[in-house]
């Protein structure tokens, strides 16, 4: 029992750490998809931001400058996706795939250009854990929930904020309407194009927080392909959570838990390769269990043309 409780705390703490990038990306995906634009490029946006964050921190020696770099890159590449899908009416899924390939190729290219070789970057200053006084003293949950880095606390705050913005503000109403009945939004005098650009831009910034957390919170370096499908897992969390911020965050926590278990499981019992599969298998199981019942925004995936 002593042992069990002793390992529960660290397990909970690493669940939160693994869930953090997923929550950021899922909330980002939510803004984009609610506006009617599929963003399967989340994976790529995270990867680009994880890299530019590290580059920024490496040049400046400051984690916050790195974060700024990462957010800017996430925004820029999200806007490229928006330009392609909204303005040029490219296929959204294909554009998203292109963003992922651009991220893989671009970070590979720049690793060689900037750091001289591919693989893993030099170590950079990351975001350190900042225990919150009193709260972090709560037994078991305290250290797990409140002895984390700044970005994790931001993630906690963003869940209710996103919920409030989406369901309780005029902006949120317009955003949701744009994803469901763009014609009505247009008739009401609100620009569908503008709302969709906002949605995709927000997805870029939020995915960037997730990417930067990955390379500078979870680790202190960038390594090629380090997102490892997290953008897709976040998308699955979004579907699993039925495009609702609370639901998506809950699903992201579940996937984070799966990753935490994977990392902490004894390697000698189950072969490592099978442990590695768990989060991906779980994602499929969750999709199978919930996809049929989840209803996507009605106008998702379709370019909007004024008649």
């Amino acid at each position: 029992m002593e042992d069990f409780l002793g390992s529960l705390g660290p397990l909970l703490a690493s669940t939160i750490r693994f869930a953090t990038p997923l929550v950021f990306a899922a909330l980002g995906g939510l803004f984009s998809e609610r506006s009617g634009v599929v963003n399967i490029g989340l994976e790529g946006l995270m990867l680009i931001s994880a890299f530019t964050g590290v580059v920024g921190a490496w040049y400046s020696g400051n984690a916050f400058v790195g974060l700024g770099f990462g957010l800017a890159a996430g925004l820029i590449f999200a806007l490229i996706h928006a330009l392609m899908c909204i303005t040029f009416e490219a296929d959204q899924i294909i554009s998203g795939t292109a963003i992922i390939l651009l991220a893989l190729g671009g970070t590979g290219f720049l690793m060689v250009e900037i750091f001289g070789s591919g693989g893993t970057s030099p170590r950079v200053p990351g975001f350190k854990e900042i225990p919150i006084p009193l709260l972090s003293d709560i037994p078991l949950f305290g250290p797990a929930l409140f002895s984390q880095s700044l970005l994790v606390y931001l993630m906690y705050a963003l869940i209710p904020i996103t919920w409030f913005v989406v369901y309780r503000t005029p902006f949120g109403l317009r955003l949701r309407a744009t994803g469901e009945v763009p014609e009505a939004v247009d008739t009401a005098g609100v620009s569908v194009t503008r709302m969709r650009y906002f949605g995709v831009a927000l997805s870029g910034i939020l995915a960037a927080f997730g990417g930067v957390y990955l390379s500078m919170g979870l680790l202190s370096a960038f390594s090629e392909g380090m997102t490892g499908g997290r953008g897709f897992i976040a998308l699955a969390a979004l579907i699993f959570g039925r495009w609702n911020p609370i639901g998506a965050a809950g699903a992201a926590l579940l996937f984070g838990f799966a990753q935490a278990v994977t990392v902490r499981a004894p390697q000698d019992v189950v072969p490592n390769e099978f442990l590695q599969m768990i989060p991906y298998v779980l994602t499929i199981v969750a999709l199978v269990a919930f996809a049929g019942r989840a209803v996507a925004p009605a106008a998702i995936g379709k370019p909007y043309r004024k008649e």
């Binding site: 490219a90 292109a98 060689v112 591919g118």
Partner: peptide
């Protein structure tokens, strides 16, 4: 790796109707 970047850009543009 520039080749990968070029492929990605081609893919990005290849369905851009407008």
């Amino acid at each position: 790796q520039l080749a990968n970047v070029l492929v990605a850009v081609i893919l990005l543009l290849v369905t851009a109707t407008k």
